[in-house]
């Protein structure tokens, strides 16, 4: 089955935390203040973070499970 998961371009991430705030599953953390990390086991691919990201560097990637 194909599912969508959010992916962060860590090189471009500014670690602002906008994505973290909107994630309904609390799947996003910014542990060391450098870039956002998405827990793929929690991500449901809703795309809220991608829409919110001010730098538009979060994309939804299709993954097979």
């Amino acid at each position: 089955m194909i599912k969508k998961k959010a992916t962060v371009s860590i090189r471009e991430c500014v670690a602002c935390g906008c994505c973290m705030k909107v994630c309904p599953k609390n799947a996003i953390t910014i542990p060391e203040g450098v870039y956002a990390e998405i827990d793929r086991t929690l991500c449901v691919g809703c795309g809220k973070c991608a829409k919110e990201c001010p730098a538009s560097i979060i994309t939804l990637e299709e993954v097979t499970s």
């Binding site: 500014v14 670690a15 602002c16 060391e32 203040g33 450098v34 990201c53 001010p54 730098a55």
Partner: peptide, 25 residues
């Protein structure tokens, strides 16, 4: 013009704190 929190992308305090975090890492 862009997204609501576009300022966060080039906010000098954000850039500076990210640099500090990078250095600490």
């Amino acid at each position: 013009l862009f997204k609501p929190r576009s300022w966060c992308v080039y906010c000098p305090m954000g850039t500076m704190t990210q640099l500090i975090c990078k250095a600490k890492k």
